[in-house]
């Protein structure tokens, strides 16, 4: 009888390049390497200090002007075909350091990236999930895909940000405090659109801390690793629709219940009526007690 034995997947070797990082991703990589609980070994992966022996390249940092020459020379020593993994938002988008005179990134302008692992820094579990994805690509799409469920996250984890347009008043405080330049508002005919790009998000949660209405909240979702083709699709989006003032008809953003609660302590039938009034009409109605629109 003929038995077909599947040979074990060959061991893949990982090589690390630091292009001028804050060392956050690097220290987490050191922990990922040192501690068996993160399971790199089980995936048939190990680190090498020799670029010529590597299959996968792990890159951290935003690529500083001074590191560029050494980084690209080291990268070229890794034989092709190779899979390149960008760890943390720095190499993916420049992160917090974008637009500095001393920073050249994003890295994909200088080399071919394959997998991105956003975060600042991503937790080791996210790093392993991204590397597992890279290993799968290297093996032609075969191999285990890591289930995020295998690594529970604490309730307070600052992972992917989520946005609720229903609660947003378009005050743009989130954009003002965002150090990563990850948030954009745009005036559209239908309303104000909000976009948060996860590949520039620093996981700091300042946006949700200063959001007056709770429209932004961090979720515990930490596995944001994705193939390079999806780089620009990693967004959180919503539109705050414009309505017409129920009194004078000017276009306006609706007053969200969260703001009404702040302003008037409670939502009653009376205060609910104020939600569809523009600020001028609202002022007249709430202060003057006038029952009829005078505009």
């Amino acid at each position: 009888m003929h038995t077909c034995k599947v040979p074990p997947a060959p061991k893949l070797r990982l090589y690390r390049i630091n292009t001028g990082s804050c060392n956050g991703c690097d220290v987490e990589l050191a922990a990922t390497e040192a501690l068996t609980r993160f399971g790199l070994e089980r995936l048939g992966l190990s680190f090498t200090a020799d670029p010529t022996q590597a299959d996968l390249v792990l890159i951290t940092g935003p690529l500083t002007v001074r590191s560029k020459g050494k980084v690209l020379a080291e990268y070229a020593q890794v034989p092709d075909p190779k899979i390149t993994v960008l760890i943390g938002v720095c190499p993916i988008s420049g992160g917090a350091f974008r637009d500095s005179y001393a920073v050249l990134g994003p890295l994909d302008e200088f080399l071919a990236a394959d997998v991105n692992i956003p975060g600042c820094p991503p937790r080791p579990e996210a790093i392993v999930a991204g590397i597992a994805e890279a290993a799968r690509l290297w093996r032609g799409g075969e191999g285990p895909q890591l289930a995020p469920a295998g690594f529970p996250a604490p309730a307070n984890l600052r992972g992917r940000m989520s946005y609720r347009a229903e609660a947003c008043v378009g005050c743009r405080m989130c954009q003002h405090v965002c150090a990563g330049g990850a948030i954009r508002f745009e005036e559209q005919e239908a309303g104000v659109s909000f976009t948060l790009w996860h590949n520039s998000c620093l996981f700091c949660g300042m946006c949700s801390h200063y959001c007056p209405t709770g429209a932004l909240t961090p979720t515990g979702e930490w596995n944001l690793a994705h193939p390079q083709a999806q780089k620009y699709q990693m967004v959180e989006q919503g539109v705050v629709p414009r309505i017409s003032c129920s009194c004078c008809g000017v276009p306006m953003l609706p007053v969200v219940p969260e703001l009404m609660r702040k302003g008037y302590r409670a939502l009653t039938r009376e205060t609910a009526q104020l939600q569809t009034l523009c600020s001028e009409c609202r002022q007249v109605r709430s202060i003057g007690g006038l029952q009829r629109c005078t505009k």
């Binding site: 988008s93 420049g94 974008r98 637009d99 005179y101 994003p106 330049g181 954009r184 976009t195 790009w197 520039s200 620009y232 699709q233 967004v235 989006q237």
Partner: peptide, 23 residues
């Protein structure tokens, strides 16, 4: 001149990706 130049370029790509692939 350079303030935000690299950021602008990236955001144009984010917008382009959303238009191709609206959620």
């Amino acid at each position: 001149f350079i303030n935000g130049a690299s950021g602008e370029k990236l955001w144009r790509q984010v917008q382009a990706a959303q238009q191709e692939n609206p959620s």
